[in-house]
């Protein structure tokens, strides 16, 4: 049962989800004509602020929720089918588990739900406890687990059926730096084994380190998809110059050249627009002579954070969409 070679693993076409909530059935467009293709074997980071529609898309891809209009397919089939799910692993956002179960019992349950039997179950449980470094807590009830331990159990249950596609909703939430590193290693190891990984996050460093491609979603719309280097131009936005030992007269001249400046004792931190402004600064410093010298020079490139700040609208619209995401019943 293999898909045609070039068929995307995940494919959505004008996917739209409208929630109606509240007394007047006010409608909120959580996803708005979203098109997305994920190819086999890539790590795709799905980025967006809280309430942008990330969880809504993931719920549709997992068959938990139905689109209002448009289409979504996974491995070329409807995501609601059991056949698709046997090829997918899923970690929900800040997952809750059955806290009366022990770690081993929970993974046994996950294996049973995936249709495994007998020896296969015991073998998978052992393998995954080892992978997420939870062997020491195998027989402890999950009610006593920390956020980080629960997150590890979450990834373990998602990988129990050795899925071809792994969908992770905010997988780095609640993990400390060591945990995040281990998690990134797990994700990269999955790619090495030819698996496809789709994960959502609002933490930019995760994406910069491991993703092949990213998609940026804001207010339910995909505003950009591509390699990170394509989305964030390499162009230098400004140059930060730290100068020490400048006297009053020259300081004023320097401040006029700079876009921003910060004084601290006889030091000065300037932000200049481009190299020609930087040349002007150098010329002034040569003229000033004496103790005046450059301590450091740092070119500033556009970061994902800048990108976000520039694209994200007012907070009110985002919160409205965010609240809807968690209204289960």
């Amino acid at each position: 049962m293999s898909s045609p070679v070039n068929e995307p693993v995940i494919n959505t076409f004008r996917l739209t989800k409208v929630y109606r909530s509240g007394f007047r059935l006010k409608s909120v467009r959580a996803l708005d004509s979203l098109d997305l293709q994920i190819e086999k074997g890539e790590i795709f980071g799905f980025l967006g602020p809280n309430g942008a529609g990330k969880t809504t898309l993931i719920k549709i891809l997992m068959g938990l929720s139905k689109p209002t209009s448009g289409e979504a397919s996974v491995f070329g089939e409807s995501p609601r089918g059991a056949r698709v799910k046997s090829r997918v692993g899923f970690l929900p956002e800040s997952p809750y588990f059955y806290d009366y179960l022990t770690a081993a019992e929970f993974l046994k349950l996950s294996a049973g739900l995936s249709g495994m039997r007998g020896q296969e179950v015991a073998h998978s449980v052992r393998r995954l406890l080892k992978l997420v470094r939870m062997e020491h807590a195998a027989n402890d009830q999950m009610r006593g687990f920390s956020r980080g331990m629960l997150q590890r159990m979450g990834i373990a249950q998602a990988l129990i059926n050795d899925p071809e596609l792994v969908i992770l909703d905010e997988p780095m939430g609640g993990l400390d730096p060591v945990g995040r590193k281990e998690f990134r290693d797990i994700i990269v190891a999955l790619r090495e084994r030819g698996k496809t990984v789709f994960f959502s996050t609002h933490i930019l460093t995760d994406v910069e380190m491991i993703c092949d491609r990213v998609g940026i979603v804001i207010s339910g719309k995909m505003v950009d998809v591509g390699r990170l280097s394509e989305i964030l131009t390499e162009e230098v936005e400004s140059i930060e110059v730290a100068i020490a030992g400048v006297s009053g007269k020259f300081r004023k001249v320097l401040e006029r050249v700079a876009r921003h400046s910060i004084r601290s004792g006889d030091s000065l931190l300037l932000s200049v627009r481009n190299e020609s402004d930087l040349d002007k600064v150098m010329a002034i410093l040569r003229e000033a002579g004496g103790d005046a010298r450059i301590k450091s020079l740092v070119p500033q490139r556009k970061t994902l954070e800048d990108y976000f700040m520039a694209h994200v609208g007012g907070p009110a619209s985002r919160d409205a969409a965010g609240r809807r995401n968690h209204d289960g019943y």
Binding site: M62, A82, R83, P92, P95, S114, Q157, G328, Y329
Partner: peptide, 19 residues
């Protein structure tokens, strides 16, 4: 059933090939 929805354990169960 309600508890599974409320505690969101249902996401884990229904994400498995369980009809």
């Amino acid at each position: 059933v309600y508890k599974e929805v409320e505690k969101r354990t249902i996401y884990i169960v229904l994400a498995k090939p369980v009809r």
